[in-house]
Design a protein around this nucleic acid. Structure first.
Lengths: 231, 231
DNA sequence: TATCATTTATGATATATATCATAATATATA
DNA sequence: TATATATTATGATATATATCATAAATGATA
């Protein structure tokens, strides 16, 4: 946790979610006054299981993971949030404390808006309420969909899934640097670290991808998609 | 799909969710005019994947399952909804069509409220918007929590989980009739039907439960909870 | 730079789980 | 009621996956 200063203006913020599109200038000003932007270095903890929920958190830049620490000390990653995603699921409406922890997997900027203000806006601006829930619902639904996609597949299908996720939904490129370790991939898709490494090697030998450390290039996306489809 | 008639009044409805507590008499009347109650027999389909989303669905009575049919024709159960639950996840705010199918696993009464009315109420009544999202968020969060609970456990832990779920959260009794077949349990907790049967037999031999067809009695809940905890 | 810890890598083995086979019940249907 | 069909049940076997062992490569730290 490094700096902590208000650098941008909500009204003109280029990272602004379309969920805020129907807010008036005054309403945006209200958010702007009470928001905090924080920069986190890769690895920094943003919030921990059990912490009181005070803010609505919005990822401006970077990449963060939502995770839970099991009794066995093993971590389990629930989801990865990308820029413009709300982070922390819907718990903010049904819980007083965080159920999961959040940390940065890349240098990130998180925007914290006092939860009371968001709740007041929901009360006073019905159009915003709908826009906001449309957006937050789709994030939550996609977490559920992802969990099912992963559980109903076996190892090769899961690795294909995660590679396609990074390529299509996060980096929008067939060449990218894996932001997480093989161990974290394992924690995200419920398999052992060794098998993550093994399957990645298989994909390399099968000429589906090229690997060099964290650098991945998908060289046969059609076949990789087939691996994903077949499970 | 059998009868379809308006039998109760929202204002006095004993099945009313507390999410509706802050609605005025007029608002409840509005819902009452536009709602439909439908009775479904065990096994009946309530809605199918791909159907247009027109209503907000609320389970008055009975038990329903939310499921997806895989390409392999195998079904995968996402969640089971109990009375007073909203059914259909949050998709209603972020999708135009149902992503999953819903069917009755016990004789059920579902209350359909025109989605436009709910959306209008969210726009016009901020207190309702918050109550409503608080409730719907907790349903959605618990689906995510359940999926994680299941995936991070192995077979015995999963069966323990499902038995405790029925006992504690659905029937509130240590003796109950399983509303679903062993095959459906398998589809709910991602394991093979044979192994569901096998583990249930093991639990019987280990004197954790008594089984007679669909009738289950938990006779050593402490040890069953331990099996769940150990995964 | 040297030392230590972590990550990546691969093979061998153990374990968990699915699949196949078969049979007894139970349930639905003509 | 008789017949077909689905469900429950168990054992044997195959398969997927985790675990263990070891080593090289990489990164962190004193």
């Amino acid at each position: 946790m490094d700096s902590s200063n208000t650098i941008s203006n909500c009204k003109t913020c280029i990272y602004k979610s379309w969920a805020f599109k129907n807010l008036s200038e005054e309403e945006l000003k209200l958010i702007n006054c009470k928001k905090t932007e924080k920069f986190y270095r890769k690895g920094d903890i943003i919030c921990s299981e059990g912490d009181e929920i005070k803010s609505f958190m919005y990822l401006q830049n970077g990449l963060v993971k939502l995770f839970k620490t099991e009794i066995s000390k093993r971590e389990h990653i629930i989801s990865i949030a990308k820029p413009k995603d709300f982070i922390g699921l819907l718990s903010i409406f049904s819980n007083t404390n965080h159920v999961y922890s959040i940390s940065a997997i890349e240098d990130s900027v998180v925007c914290f808006v006092d939860l009371k203000i968001i709740k007041n806006l929901i009360k006073s601006n019905g159009i915003f309420a709908l826009d906001f829930f449309e957006r937050i619902s789709s994030v939550s639904d996609s977490v559920i969909k992802t969990r099912i996609d992963i559980n109903t597949r076996q190892l090769r299908g899961r690795i294909a899934y995660i590679l396609l996720l990074f390529s299509k939904h996060i980096y929008d490129s067939e060449k990218f640097n894996l932001p997480i370790s093989r161990k974290e991939i394992a924690e995200l898709i419920d398999m052992s670290t060794e098998n993550v490494i093994r399957v990645l090697s298989e994909f390399r030998k099968d000429k589906l991808i090229q690997i060099e450390g964290k650098s991945i290039e998908i060289i046969d996306i059609k076949r990789l998609e087939k691996v994903y489809d077949l499970g």
